[in-house]
Each structure stands twice: as C-alpha cells, then as structure tokens.
Simulated scan of single mutants.
Amino acid sequence: MNGWMGIIGTCVTVAGVIVTGWFTYRGTRTAAAIQSGPAAEQSKFTVLEATVTRVDSENKELRTGQRRLESLLRAFAWTTDRWARQMHEAGIEPEPAHPLVDEYNRTGV
C-alpha cells in the first residue's frame, strides 16, 4: 500500500506542478502584455508624430512651390497681355491664344 500511495502522491505533485506552471505562464504573459501596452502605444504615437511632422514639412514645401508657380503664371499672363496690346496698337494681329489661355484670362484659374 505504501508503494501505491507514493505513486499517487507523485502523480498529484506532477499534476500540481503542471497546473501551477500553466497559471504562471498565463499570468506572466498577461502581465507582459499589460506592461508593454503603454510602451507599444508610446512607440506608435512617436512614429505617428514623426510622420505628421514630415508630411507637414512636405506640404509646406509644396504650398510654397505652388504659390511661386501661380505668381509666375500671373506675371507671364500680364506680360503676354501687355505684348498683345502693343501688337494691336501697332496694327499687328497676333495669333489667337490657346483655349487654356483664354480660360485662364476669363477665370483666373
């Protein structure tokens, strides 16, 4: 009888160790997830913040270039208009303007 009791005691001990190990594993994994949560969120936020800063910088450069191009287009339109008036005053009939130029002169866009 002592032999059977030893085997049963050993089996109960092994089962207890396995169950304890399983609960320890789950608890450790959950604790790691809870701890890494704020760090992971902070990391995501840092990446997002860097991306927004980069996109803002690129947009500023694009807006500056677009303003410059619009100013150049306006200056070119005024210059060609002045030349066309000078040709009319001198009795020279200029070639008709491209339809896109006519549209720009009508709408400013």
Results as ranks from 00 to 15, higher is better:
P99F: 00
G65P: 00
K44I: 05
E103P: 01
E58N: 12
W22P: 06
R67A: 14
A50T: 13
R74C: 00
N2H: 13
F76N: 08
T28E: 08
D81Q: 12
A90F: 04
T51K: 11
Q35W: 04
I34R: 11
T46E: 12
G108K: 02
R74H: 08
V52R: 09
T107N: 02
A32C: 04
V52H: 08
F76C: 02
Q86N: 10
S57G: 15
K44T: 05
V14N: 00
H88D: 15
P94E: 10
M87H: 07
F45A: 14
R82P: 00
G16M: 12
L69H: 02
E58Y: 10
R63W: 01
P94K: 04
R54V: 04
L69G: 02
Q66S: 02
Y25T: 01
L62T: 14
G9C: 07
V55W: 07
A32K: 11
W78D: 03
K44P: 01
E93D: 09
D56H: 01
W4R: 05
S71A: 15
F76L: 12
I92D: 11
A77T: 03
V55E: 15
R82G: 08
A77G: 01
S71E: 14
S57C: 09
A39Q: 15
E61G: 01
M5Q: 05
V19N: 06
L72I: 11
W4H: 06
P94R: 04
R68F: 09
M5T: 06
A77F: 05
T10Q: 02
P99G: 02
Q86R: 03
R106Q: 08
Y25Q: 10
G27N: 15
G65M: 13
P99A: 03
L62S: 10
E93N: 10
V47L: 13
E89P: 05
V12M: 09
M5P: 00
K44Y: 13
E49A: 12
K60V: 09
T51R: 11
F45H: 12
R74P: 00
G16R: 04
F23H: 09
I18C: 04
A40D: 12
T79C: 02
V19G: 11
V12Q: 01
P96I: 06
R54Y: 08
T107K: 07
E95R: 06
V17T: 07
W83I: 13
A15F: 12
R29L: 09
W78T: 04
G37I: 01
R106P: 01
N105P: 00
A31H: 07
R29Q: 15
Y104H: 00
K44A: 15
T30M: 04
T51D: 14
E41N: 12
R29G: 07
M5S: 08
P96V: 05
W4A: 07
G16L: 15
G16H: 06
L100S: 03
T79Y: 10
M5V: 04
M1V: 10
M1D: 08
G91Y: 09
P96K: 08
V109S: 05
Y25E: 09
V55D: 13
E93A: 09
M87A: 15
T24M: 13
V17F: 15
A31K: 13
